[in-house]
Amino acid sequence: MTSSVPWQQRLSTGTEDIQDEVIGWYQQTRHGKAYVPTMIWGTLQTEAYATVILRQVVEFLGVPDDVPAGVAKRMERQQVLYDGEHHYDVILGEQALYTNIGGPEVMRGQMERILRDISLPSLTLGVLSATAEVGIVPKPGFNIFGDSRAHYELVSTGVDITDPDELALHNKAFSAFSNAACYGAAAEKLISKALAFWSNG
């Protein structure tokens, strides 16, 4: 089954309520996966980075402006990285390290945050090099919440997929990205290269 709700409907009261809903998704998901090709995974975002993202959402969609409240909820979500009860496999596209969200200062802080948290027991973080050969046609980013749902954030709507056969294909796609991604010291090298870029910019 596939369901979608337009963002302007889901965000009709602003960003806080949907962020609160997402906290529930993460708290209920002991093992999640995320493929995020062009931006930083929300649960690793700094407050400054998240503020820029949610400000863009509010201005683009014309929804009520409650950015500080939405950012506070996004920061609250990140407790799942530190409570010892959850684990997340996350693959960032190398482009995510260079997509300019808020300028060099924000991006430097974001790269430093990733380097600080990459070794968390709750996190397996890979970086998919821009030149990596992947055995699958490029796909938009998606999150997998346990065995129950895959979630996409499109321009106009959020899409949830719950059909078991479709979820199996999403897990297969994630495995293809994972097999091509860099981990450990190789991933840290790519992130450090991005940090140097934003530090020199």
Rank of each mutant, 00 (worst) to 15 (best):
W7T: 03
G24H: 03
R74P: 00
G141E: 14
Q110A: 06
A185I: 10
G103P: 03
T38L: 03
I53C: 11
I91Q: 04
A72G: 03
H170N: 14
Q8A: 14
V36A: 00
E105G: 07
I101W: 00
A69D: 02
V52P: 09
L115P: 04
G146P: 06
T99Q: 06
Q8H: 14
R113Y: 12
V134N: 00
R113M: 12
A96R: 01
K189N: 13
K33L: 12
V71S: 02
G135L: 10
I114H: 04
D20I: 07
A187C: 02
Q27W: 05
D83P: 01
T43A: 06
P6G: 07
A132W: 01
W198N: 13
R10Q: 15
D83Q: 00
V58H: 05
L123K: 02
D20K: 11
I101L: 01
L190F: 11
C182Q: 07
V63F: 04
Y35E: 08
S3R: 15
T38G: 07
T38V: 05
S175V: 13
A50S: 05
I40T: 14
R74V: 08
Y183P: 00
I91G: 02
A130W: 07
V90K: 03
A180S: 11
A168M: 12
E153D: 14
T51N: 05
A132T: 09
L92M: 03
R30K: 15
F174V: 07
Q27P: 05
I161K: 04
A96E: 00
V137S: 10
K193E: 15
K73A: 12
S4W: 04
T124Q: 04
G135V: 06
L169G: 14
Q79N: 11
A150D: 11
T131M: 06
A176R: 15
V22I: 09
L44F: 09
S119C: 01
V134P: 02
M1K: 13
D165P: 04
E105T: 14
V127I: 15
S156G: 10
S4R: 09
V137I: 12
S156E: 06
S178E: 15
H86G: 06
F142M: 01
H170C: 13
F142A: 03
M107W: 13
K193S: 11
N143A: 05
E153C: 14
G70N: 09
S178V: 08
L81H: 04
T162N: 10
E112V: 07
H31S: 15
P138K: 08
I118Q: 03
S119N: 09
